[in-house]
Write a protein that binds this DNA or RNA. Structure first.
Lengths: 332, 332
DNA sequence: AAGGATGGCGTCAACGTTGACGTAAGTCAA
DNA sequence: TTGACTTACGTCAACGTTGACGCCATCCTT
C-alpha cells in the first residue's frame, strides 16, 4: 500500500514541527488555539491518519486485541465475536481474529503471530487442554482473558457461564414436567466444561422425585451427527427414555431429528433440552427448550476485564461466572 | 505488553551484528552455515519473534489483511470468514476483523482504522451503496476485493456468486415440480444483488409451462420475521400460491413457519425454496430446498485475488462469478 | 601476479512516531 | 527588578527493523 500523509507533511504545510502536530493530534496540550485549528485543518486537507505501526513501536501499544476462537463456524461463536468487536471498537481498538481449530499446536502458532503483531491483549476460547500454555503467555506479561471456561491461574483472567447450574436447571425442568427416565448426551471432549455440565446434571438427581430413575449418560462428538448417534445409543440401552439433556444445541438438534426418524414424537414421547440457545434453536420445529447464555453480556465482560488487565497488568481478577437461564419452547 | 527479545539481543549473544541476524531470520543469504546455526540457536533460546510493527514500518508490509463484514451474526458469514482466515494464515498473514453494520459511515471508520494499521489489503462485504466509497480506497492504492457483489470498477476486484442463475434454477425447479402460482419474497435492501435475483426469477417465466401464472413479488427485510411478513403479504394477495422463492434462507425459514402457522402444509400445499444453504437449512423440518453457494471456494478465490493485487498492484482483475447449485430437500 | 568476482559480514540511515528535555517569550509575585 | 513559573513551541534520540552500501578476505581467471 502507498503511504499516506505523515506528521511531517502536516507540519510542513502548517509551518510547525512534527512534534507539535503530534501534540495536537493526540490532544496532549501545549499548543495554542490558533495552532490547533490550523493543524486540524491541514490534517483534514491531507487526510492524515496516524501510523499505528510507528506509534505502537514506541508506545508499546498497538491498539489491537487478539480474538482467538476454536472455530468460527461454531454457531455459538459469531454473536460473541460481534459483541467483542463492537466493544473493542468503542475503545478504539481493532480485532485480530484467528482460529485455533481446537488444536494446541495451532493455538501456539496463533499466539506467536499475535505476539509478533504486538497485540495489547487477547481474548481466547481455549483449545482443549491448553490452559497451561495460556498461563505461560500470561506469565510473560500478555494480558489474557479466557472465555467460556473457568480457570484459576494467577495473571489469567476468565469469564464464563454457570453451566453447572444450567445442567441443574435443565434436569430439574425435565423432572418437573413429569419425565422420569432421562438421558444426557454429553461431549467426549475432555475439558472442564464437560465435567461441570455432567456434574450439574447428576446433582439434580440427588433428591429425585418419586418414580425418577437413575439417569443415563453417553459421550459423543459435540456435533449434530454426534447428537443423533448419542440418541441412538441411549435408546438402545433404554428404549423407554422420555427426556434428554444435550451438551449443546447442535447435539440436541441431532437428537431431535434422530428421535423423529425413529418414530418418537417430540415432545410427546420424548422431551429434549439443549444448551446455548443458538439462533437456530428458536426456528426449529418444534422450537428447542434450552439454556440461554447471555452472550452479549459475556462479550462485554470479557472486553472490560481485558482492558482492566491492559491498564493494570498487576491486577489479578477473580474468575467471573455469569448466570444462565432456562428458555422453555416446544420441545419439552 | 512487555517486549520480547530483539535482533540486537540475539546478535549480542551470538557475537554478530543485528543485520546478520536479520539476514538469517529472513533467510536472505549472505551468511555462513556456522553462523546460521548459531543464530537460530540463539533465536530459539531467547524466544525471539520478529516485531511486525518495526518490520512493517520499513517494508510497508504489515502481514495483515482486513476482513470487513456486514455483521458477523449473519449466518452466511462465519463459514466465509473461517475460510478466509485459514487461507490467509497459509500465506503468513493475520486477519483484522471488523463489521460495517451495513452502514457507510461505519464502514468509512473501519477503513480509516485499517489504513492506520497499514493492512496489506482488504476483503469486504460491502455495506449497501458504498461501491463508490470502496472504489475511492482502491484508487488510492489499497488492494481491495469486494465479495458477494459484482462490481466493475478499475482497481477494484470482485468475487461473487451467480445468483441470477440461482434464481433461475429456483424458479425452474418450482415450475418443473408442477407449481404454477409462484411468489418471490425479495429483499427491500436496494443493492445490485437484490435486483439480480429478481431478474433471474422473472427470466424463468419468459417461456413458462402451460398453466403457469404470472409470479408475485414482495420486498421485505431480509430476516426471519421479514420472511414471515412477506409470506403473509403474498397470501393476502393470492391465498392459492403453491410455490415460494425467498431471497435468502432466513427469509425462507420465516416463510415456512408462517405458512405452517397459517395451516398450510410444506411442501404439500406450498413449496419453498431458499437461497444460500446456510448450515441451519439442512436441519429444519422439513429440510429446506435451497441454492447452495460454495463458500469455501469463494473464500479461497477472494484471498487468491487479493494476493495477486498485493503482489501486482497494477493488475486489473476481471470480476469473478462463481456457479451455484440447487440442493433439493424436503420443502419442495 | 594482477585484476576481478564473490562470500560474509558490518555500518549507517531511514521508516513515522513519541518521550525527554531544552528554550525563548511572557506572566507574576515580592 | 529579579527570580520563579508557565506557555508554546522545537530538538534530539529512540522504538526494532531493513535497504543501501562498504569493506575485507578469499578465490578464480588469465
Amino acid at each position: 500500500m502507498p503511504r499516506g500523509a505523515t506528521l511531517r507533511d502536516v507540519a510542513d504545510r502548517v509551518g510547525v514541527s512534527p512534534r507539535t502536530v503530534s501534540r495536537v493530534v493526540n490532544d496532549e496540550g501545549g499548543f495554542s488555539e490558533v495552532t490547533r485549528v490550523r493543524v486540524l485543518e491541514a490534517v483534514e486537507d491531507l487526510g492524515y491518519q496516524p501510523n499505528m505501526l510507528a506509534r505502537g513501536l514506541i508506545t508499546h501499544r498497538s491498539g489491537t486485541v487478539g480474538l482467538v476462537g476454536v472455530d468460527m463456524t461454531d454457531p455459538f461463536f459469531p454473536a460473541m465475536a460481534e459483541g467483542i468487536q463492537n466493544a473493542a471498537r468503542e475503545t478504539g481498538r481493532t480485532i485480530f481474529f484467528a482460529s485455533n481449530d481446537g488444536d494446541s499446536q495451532r493455538q501456539a502458532e496463533v499466539f506467536r503471530s499475535l505476539w509478533s503483531h504486538a497485540v495489547d491483549g487477547v481474548i481466547v476460547f481455549p483449545a482443549p487442554g491448553t490452559i497451561d500454555q495460556l498461563a505461560g503467555y500470561a506469565r510473560r506479561g500478555m494480558p489474557l482473558v479466557v472465555v467460556d471456561d473457568i480457570v484459576e491461574f494467577p495473571n489469567l483472567a476468565s469469564v464464563s457461564f454457570d453451566l453447572e447450574d444450567g445442567a441443574v436447571q435443565a434436569a430439574q425442568h425435565l423432572l418437573a414436567t413429569g419425565r422420569r427416565r432421562i438421558g444426557m448426551i454429553g461431549s467426549e471432549i475432555t475439558v472442564p466444561r464437560t465435567r461441570r455440565r455432567e456434574r450439574g446434571f447428576y446433582q439434580a438427581f440427588e433428591s429425585p422425585p418419586v418414580g425418577a430413575e437413575l439417569p443415563e449418560l453417553v459421550r459423543v462428538q459435540p456435533t449434530v451427527s454426534g447428537g443423533a448417534a448419542g440418541l441412538q445409543k441411549l435408546l438402545e440401552r433404554r428404549p423407554d427414555l422420555d427426556g434428554i439433556f444435550a451438551y449443546n444445541d447442535l447435539m440436541a438438534v441431532g437428537a431431535m431429528r434422530a428421535a423423529q426418524a425413529s418414530g418418537y414424537r417430540v415432545p410427546d414421547d420424548i422431551a429434549i433440552v439443549g444448551c446455548n440457545d443458538i439462533e437456530m434453536s428458536a426456528l426449529l420445529n418444534p422450537g428447542l427448550t434450552t439454556i440461554r447464555l447471555d452472550r452479549p453480556r459475556l462479550s462485554a465482560e470479557a472486553i472490560r476485564v481485558l482492558h482492566e488487565l491492559i491498564e493494570e497488568p498487576t491486577s489479578n481478577p477473580t474468575p467471573l461466572v455469569l448466570p444462565v437461564e432456562l428458555v422453555i419452547r416446544e420441545s419439552t
